[in-house]
Design a protein around this nucleic acid. Structure first.
Lengths: 232, 232
DNA sequence: GTCTATAACTAGATAGAC
DNA sequence: GTCTATCTAGTTATAGAC
């Protein structure tokens, strides 16, 4: 599994990118932190851009595999009609749980991943998007089956809201400290955050349809049992 | 009010920062786009950092003044007990409406603002946070009055979710295109987005309390009339 | 206020010895 | 695979003429 220095460089790059951003992190800083030679990045990866891609690929692929594993487990259990809260947990869980996995990058990478959604570089956008493509597609249709009465453009926007809120939470911004005046320890407790996030998202996904004309009530989230669709 | 070139530089900087990010935009690119001299940035603003701050201050202050104006109007109307959906609209509206205001920076600045929340630079974080401080404080207590039965740490997390989701929507990411396969025109329609976002957020703020022990139902969003608190 | 010229530095990438 | 040395090009910032 790859040379040793290759992984040491990936670790150092991950940490520095998460802390300073891509553009503000030089190859010199990375190789110094890794105890490696300046030329080694270009030898092992080819370019800074390729290094960035490798940093993402290393953790994103297993994470998205886990998402799909949980999705399939749900569909097996419920005969193809996975319930809404299960789907949300299957999507959100693997991302948030990464931050507990200190052995394998943990919180550092989660911050980086959260920020990747709003990074301006088009090449990075394209690369990361490619790694998410399959997952997004499969969850899109699963959510469609879980919320069959929701119009599809409304569904897409709400999925977008879900992805975005997860990304923001992962990025772990300073703004949170301003709002909650809370210590970082709390924000790192993935389990508590997951529960709060899932409850918020389930309610949002079930929200009544918007509209200036006081649209019909679509759903109030029922608390007992699992949500498996919209109820009138 | 300020020299002419000063504003031309601000416009050019705003556009380039929004498109390429701060670190990837050089003063040379900015002055070239503005038709001004390289030295003029340092003459008028002192440094690149100070220019960044000026770009934000120019639009952030009026925006936050408008938020507070709407908050006060609500509190006048409802005698200090502003309803939940009104509060959310008062917070979210002025930000999203900026993107319609093509005269005054419009969508460009909104994208930039959305991304500012996840920018790594600590100095930028501190500066922008300072410009938001008063607004956050006042809305925090108003939301507390609108949702009196919600435990305060839960309230803070949900406010954090609200701010984060708004930030993500403003940033207008590529990921959205992957999810919705939608044309940009749709994403720029501030009114439609606002309705969708408010409906999602109202439901999320009213969500049942999370907890492994199947907590009590706190609220299902009622569709008629305004939301003004939690109902059992 | 605006310009030219340049100082002082840092960046990514590579050639070639070991 | 790893190192040194170096190339080329980019950066912010400033001094000083107009």
């Amino acid at each position: 599994m790859g040379s040793d220095t290759k992984n040491i460089i990936l670790d150092a790059a991950e940490a520095l990118f998460a802390g300073e951003g891509f553009a503000n992190t030089s190859l010199r800083a990375i190789t110094a932190a890794a105890g490696a030679n300046l030329a080694s990045v270009n030898y092992h990866f080819g370019s800074k851009d390729a290094l960035i891609e490798a940093v993402f690929a290393r953790r994103l692929r297993p994470m998205n595999r886990e998402r799909i594993r949980r999705l399939e487990a749900l569909e097996d259990e419920y005969g193809g009609a996975a319930p809404l809260d299960g789907l949300i947990e299957a999507f959100v869980g693997p991302a948030l749980e990464l931050s507990r996995d200190t052995e394998r990058g943990g919180a550092r990478f989660v911050r980086l991943l959260g920020r990747s959604y709003t990074e301006p570089s088009p090449s990075l956008q394209a690369r990361v998007r490619g790694m998410h493509e399959e997952v997004i597609g499969r969850f899109k249709s699963a959510f469609g089956r879980a919320l069959p009465e929701l119009p599809s453009d409304e569904l897409y926007w709400r999925l977008h809201f879900m992805v975005g809120l997860l990304a923001y939470c992962m990025a772990g911004t300073d703004m949170m400290r301003l709002i909650a005046s809370c210590r970082l320890a709390d924000s790192l407790d993935a389990d508590v955050l997951k529960e709060r996030l899932v409850s918020f998202l389930v309610a949002g996904m079930c929200a009544p349809l918007p509209g200036p004309l006081e649209g019909p009530v679509i759903a109030g989230p029922a608390r007992e049992g699992r949500h498996n669709g919209l109820t009138t």
